[in-house]
Design a protein around this nucleic acid. Structure first.
Lengths: 227, 227
DNA sequence: ACTTTGCGGTTAATTAAATAACAGTCCGGA
DNA sequence: TCCGGACTGTTATTTAATTAACCGCAAAGT
């Protein structure tokens, strides 16, 4: 019992990042009426090893009666609870530029448990404009809306220069998780989680691989490209 | 010599993902006039260990005269070459919805070596509309533009249902790297790199950590929350 | 009732990544 | 000229993640 009671937080990042993939696939299976799924089936459809999937689930324990495959209908809510979206997480989008608009309009956010309860910007042209039925609000409203709606997660899409200042305000207002799209490292106090989504990193690592592919193709043709 | 000549492609993913961070920080240092930087300084500013940075660089070798710190002016182009952006990589954005627009307008793409040379969509309302000085083009033009511009990298922001079909066309037209924002796993032939940028994964793993933080705070207050 | 098959939980082995330790180079100053 | 300090490139060690192996259970068929 003491074992079970341990914090579920000392889980490897690699595992955490796979949980959403499991959930997504399971929801898809659920949608097409699949009731049971074995670790092998699920793993293969995600291009990972079954043992890894079971190992991941083992951190949380008890998803199936022993000897029987997983029941989709039980696994989905279990994962949702683990991830923290059994109850919808009200979310704020700060920065209503192109990216902010894209995210605010991204319907899946709602569907996946992150209803957008506030969109903020400084630009007078944007304030008042409607997105997904909600007006863009002035930054002046930031703190009051966060507190009124109990927002714990914010998506940050402001210019890099303002990112830190806005992050500070968010934290002060009670936000505990920041999904940062600004190309800046945020300094936040202990007890606040930041996830940086840096486009540049993504496209550059892709570029590296593309370069490798093209080079190996060249070598295949000319066999001995210089150095 | 044979050692040096080895493909630079058997480099751990973890290292590849750090290269853009190194480059970004170095460019920043360059901008403020810093000429030399030691592995320790650079590593500390990125919150990693100096030995890891040197270890990463060691895959590519020869960035400094031994015993002397790195010269920013030499390291920047060296990294750019490794990443594959010494020469700008013309890039296509396929799907001109909100996200596609955000990316097409994202000025940093150009600055970081990925000039957008084609924006495509199916929607008649969008076709012809200008973004960053370029008209959104019909999907009919896709293949011809890719070939004319020599585009090897494409950013995919179409709805999930169409993602695979579009990816197939891209590959057939000569694209070697796909930056996929659609929440779908793409099947591509050998010799094509895909990087999935899945927002849902990002925000859900953030949510997991937020949940953990909130729980531990609750425990701190009430000390013995049930179970 | 019994055996066979397939399943997940769990632990062990293997592989990969991060970190530390070391050897050799360069420069500045006594 | 020689020494001390700072630095990188490289190798060894430690740590973490992945993969494989095993065990006991449950259902289906005989």
């Amino acid at each position: 019992m003491a074992k079970k009671n341990r914090q579920t937080c000392d889980v490897p990042d690699a595992t955490i990042h796979r949980l959403p993939l499991y959930l997504e696939k399971l929801k898809m299976l659920q949608a097409i009426g699949v009731e049971d799924v074995s670790s092998r089936q699920l793993a293969e459809s995600l291009d990972i090893k079954a043992s890894q999937l079971r190992h991941d689930f083992h951190y949380f324990g008890g998803f199936s009666r022993p000897g029987r495959p997983y029941q989709v209908a039980k696994l989905v809510p279990a994962l949702e609870k683990i991830i923290g979206i059994s109850v919808p997480q009200p979310t704020a989008v700060v920065g209503a530029g192109h990216l902010g608009q894209a995210l605010a309009n991204y319907q899946n956010l709602d569907l996946q448990g992150f209803p957008v309860k506030g969109i903020f910007d400084t630009s007078p042209e944007l304030i008042g404009q409607e997105m997904r039925g909600q007006p863009v609000q002035s930054m002046d409203e930031l703190e009051s809306v966060i507190q009124r709606e109990g927002i714990k997660i914010a998506i940050l899409t402001v210019p890099a220069i303002h990112a830190q200042a806005v992050a500070d305000r968010l934290v002060a207002a009670g936000v505990v998780g920041i999904f940062n799209f600004a190309p800046t490292d945020l300094k936040v106090p202990e007890g606040v989680a930041v996830r940086n989504e840096r486009m540049a990193v993504g496209i550059m690592s892709l570029s590296f691989k593309v370069k490798c592919i093209l080079q190996s193709q060249d070598c295949g043709e000319t066999q001995a490209e210089e150095l």
